[in-house]
């Protein structure tokens, strides 16, 4: 993350540190950057409120189950972030996860090993992502329409392959993936965390990441300086597809079955987490930390409401309200 340089004078060594600290405070309080912190503020508020209402909210056990529950959404939100950073959107991300899960189940049930099944799931995600990306960047068709079509096509394909029936997956390693933990951190959350860290490095410390942000910020300017914007646009959909493939493995491990279910909540929540995280839907401005916190917030919201005994029916409603509030806050602060 960048800190703005606050002075033009060249600071000497001891004052440099103070100037940097001052710059950091100013950077945090800057309205344009404050919007980036909306998710964190929201998360803290939620945690305080839920803890006050139910003291078991912050128990080690509940934190652990929340983090595990958040893992899939974190992975999807990271993928969605790359797409949104280029001013695109991937509406198919959850159905690609469903399709990859069904492929995983089918390959696994056919007697192939776990690794082969996992690779098949990743390859499925990558291929669908590549198809999305090529149609959008080379075919010049609006991302919204293309991924809406893929949403339907991928869930349909999943139904066809699975013949509409869930397939139970019994596998020791998958069970360990779902239940194993280091301290309060479940394996699946740790995987999501590693993915988020790698994504952060890719977005902010590689040429590719800079090109992603440049393509989203001003595609015309980016191509004028020689950035291959069409390839970048294709690549982000491949990334989203591969991450949907990884999410599908986490999903199968968690559910214990490969289901051709719709998973629409995951789609809405992945976009919601990105918006909560302060990522601009117009592209060019993105963080990984923001959407990850956004995903944690959404998970904490659902978990807290469940702990308080609020009917399940209220959960989508509350998620919707929070997301619109966050979007409003972002807009208001800019």
């Amino acid at each position: 993350m960048t800190t703005t340089r606050t002075d033009t004078a060249t600071p000497s060594a001891p004052t440099a540190q103070r100037a940097r600290a001052g710059g950091l405070i100013r950077w945090v309080l800057d309205p344009a950057n404050l919007a980036d912190w909306a998710a964190l503020v929201g998360l803290v508020v939620l945690v305080v409120v839920f803890q006050a209402l139910n003291s078991s909210f912050l128990s080690a056990g509940n934190i652990q189950s929340m983090l595990v529950a958040a893992a899939i959404l974190v992975v999807l939100a990271v993928g969605q972030t790359f797409v949104v950073a280029t001013a695109g959107i991937d509406l198919s991300i959850a159905s690609v996860m469903t399709l990859a899960a069904v492929v995983f189940g089918t390959v696994f049930a056919s007697g192939a090993g776990l690794l082969v099944a996992a690779l098949a799931a990743l390859a499925t995600g990558a291929l669908v992502g590549l198809a999305n990306g090529l149609v959008i960047s080379k075919g010049r068709i609006t991302d919204f329409i293309v991924t809406l079509g893929t949403l339907s096509a991928a869930s349909g394909l999943a139904l066809i392959i699975a013949d509409g029936k869930p397939r139970t997956i019994i596998s020791g390693p998958l069970l360990r993936l779902a239940t194993g933990h280091v301290g309060i951190f479940g394996y699946s959350f740790l995987i999501a965390l590693v993915i988020a860290v790698v994504a952060h490095v890719v977005l902010f410390h590689t040429r590719f990441g800079t090109y992603v942000l440049a393509t989203g910020g001003n595609a015309e300017a980016a191509s004028a300086t020689g950035v291959p914007t069409a390839r970048i646009k294709t690549a982000v959909y491949v990334i989203a597809g591969v991450l949907a493939g990884i999410a599908s493995i986490l999903l199968v491990a968690r559910v214990g079955a490969a289901e051709p279910a719709a998973n629409t909540a995951f789609l809405l929540n992945s976009v919601a987490a990105v918006v909560l995280g302060g990522v601009s839907l117009f592209g060019g401005r993105a963080t990984i930390v923001g959407p990850v916190i956004g995903a944690l917030l959404l998970t904490a919201l659902v978990n807290g409401l469940t702990l308080l005994g609020v009917s399940q029916f209220y959960q989508p409603l509350s998620v919707g309200v929070v997301v619109v509030l966050a979007a409003f806050l972002t807009r208001f602060q800019k």
Binding site: V201, T206, R207, T210, G217, N218, E220, T225, V227, G284
Partner: peptide, 30 residues
């Protein structure tokens, strides 16, 4: 039209597509 990306910083724009990287192979970081 200047061909600048407004949401990137001045230095990112100056080095756009000319980034200084270190490391080898696919592990090249800015």
């Amino acid at each position: 039209n200047l061909a600048l990306v407004e949401d990137l910083t001045v230095w990112q724009n100056l080095f756009l597509n000319r980034e200084i990287v270190r490391g080898v192979g696919p592990l090249r970081l800015l």
